[in-house]
Design a protein around this nucleic acid. Sequence first.
DNA 1: CTGAAAGCGCTTACAG
DNA 2: CTGAAAGCGCTTACAG
Lengths: 345, 345
Amino acid sequence: MPERMRDMVTIKDIAKQIGVSVSTVSRALNNHPDIKPETKREVLEAMERLQYTPNALARSLINKKSYTVGLMIPDITDPFFAAIADGVEEILSDSGYQVVYGNTTHKQEKEIRFLNSVIERKMDGIIATPDVMSEEIVDMLERLQIPVVLLRRRPPEGLKIPVVDVDHYQGACSAVQYLLSLGHSRIGFLGLPPYSFTGQERFRGYIDTLAAHGLEPLPKEPLFAGRTIEHGFKAMARLYEEAPEVTAVFAANDMLGIGALEWLAKNGIRVPDRISVVGFDNLEVTDLHWIKLTTISQPRNLMGKKAAELLLQMMKEHVLTHDPIFLDTELIVRETCAPMSRVKA
Amino acid sequence: MPERMRDMVTIKDIAKQIGVSVSTVSRALNNHPDIKPETKREVLEAMERLQYTPNALARSLINKKSYTVGLMIPDITDPFFAAIADGVEEILSDSGYQVVYGNTTHKQEKEIRFLNSVIERKMDGIIATPDVMSEEIVDMLERLQIPVVLLRRRPPEGLKIPVVDVDHYQGACSAVQYLLSLGHSRIGFLGLPPYSFTGQERFRGYIDTLAAHGLEPLPKEPLFAGRTIEHGFKAMARLYEEAPEVTAVFAANDMLGIGALEWLAKNGIRVPDRISVVGFDNLEVTDLHWIKLTTISQPRNLMGKKAAELLLQMMKEHVLTHDPIFLDTELIVRETCAPMSRVKA
DNA sequence: CTGAAAGCGCTTACAG
DNA sequence: CTGAAAGCGCTTACAG
């Protein structure tokens, strides 16, 4: 009898081939102990011969486990999330999971669509960075009834969704602390947009550390500039205009820091001879010869890994909650800061 | 009767709720015409009430269509592939597909695992950039029996897998052409590793364009340096040593170009006053204030989109082959090139 | 150790 | 227009 061309070979085909039942074939496939070693060998050989590949859809349907995990991120093009995705994928794929990613481009509509997909496809868990923790999103996350780990976001009051993130507050404190240790006291701030949670945390770190030393912020009215180089450029201009006495600036992210560096370079203000600059994020570019920005590094890839490990653990233990994990930041000293003693006014 | 807690609600549950058969429920779900409008309304309402979500696994099992597509890339952390992934995702998700991504970190073992997963999960198609087109990978790609589109790779002789890529040769030609039009004739080359296909193409573009104008390459023995800034740095040193008469260099990628810029800056050789530099790729960093590298831009996001559109079309038409698509590059003029007339030796 | 049967959640002829 | 039945490819008690 001629084999049907190119049709998927199933458990049934291989059963027929060697004259056993599908139950037996299934047992061989699943390493079930109740099977004679020789039978098993025969089955496995037949599978090899017919190039059998199990149908994961059918298996998942019965086992109620899809070995599939969702990764919802706002922008895969952001090196930050790319590194996280990389870490997530590394851990998860080693445990046999497939990661399905939802690139939401900061649109809630896409987030909702993705979460629906997570439900429909019976994914086993999800790692998510919603663009904003809106009520609708939080609702859906709850209704999922599968392990969720939040990345760089906080669950709303009362909801115990575990989160993996860096301690932005501490990171900012250590940046400012470093400037202080260099003898600076007139330290300016270039901030992220006011609605940004990480921006708020980093600002808190700045303001609290200054306050602890009896110092005032510069300018008085904090500059919540944005997140791009251009924002940094313009904000630096304003900062210098409003507070020319400034000798150091803490930029809430590297892009702002680079923008500041650009403005300073264009205006002939030397770094670090006249003004020191510290960034936050440790983007690749900060190590460029022309930039060499001193900054705060976040273990991005590790964050992804930790999130994946946490999810794995939750899936294994069938729990929906867990303690948050906060990772340490690290000060990366490069060439944009000088001690106050060397500053020429 | 108390509802079972938290158990998945199925088509059966909703059928019971309003006293119809599952067939009817299914018909409502699938917008089948053979159903009384009122019945349909009732069913839909019940679905809403019970928060029903269809089980995609069950549907796929029957329909033999999973609305799932694989995206196999060597490194999601490479901005290049991130941009491609973004484009792919945008198009595919708009058509209701979920993209499952396989980040292979340049390891064939991971590629094989991913391709197996593609088979097991009955994905409908795949967009792939194998790290190397080895026989084993090509074999698997063929056996898939689903539409495949290759990204930045060429199918082996005789195999008609469609590819989407940029015309590297043309791009290189236009870069060198530009330098020629500026009056340069002693044009150096900083190359990718010799085994790199794109590297070979870009080299061909360089050498052919020179030859067409009766010019010789510099140095005589081409420098196949690598792909990093450091490689570019060292290669530029060698190039200058071996051919100090050089007035322009074409770097086969931006990283090499930046490395060259770095070496030139450190050695007080002014760009573009003394030496002009052209890169290839148009990475974000090339637009940085300190760099402003003139380069060849590849439409990365568009490549992803085109690949996705092509795959969509192939899936729709149930074909396994198609003509390749080559996208145009674009010369991005910034500040690292000057006309020969302004060069001070 | 093995097989027949029921079932996972859904779809689709087929009869009515 | 509607329902009963068979079936997608697999797993898992249950009986032998």
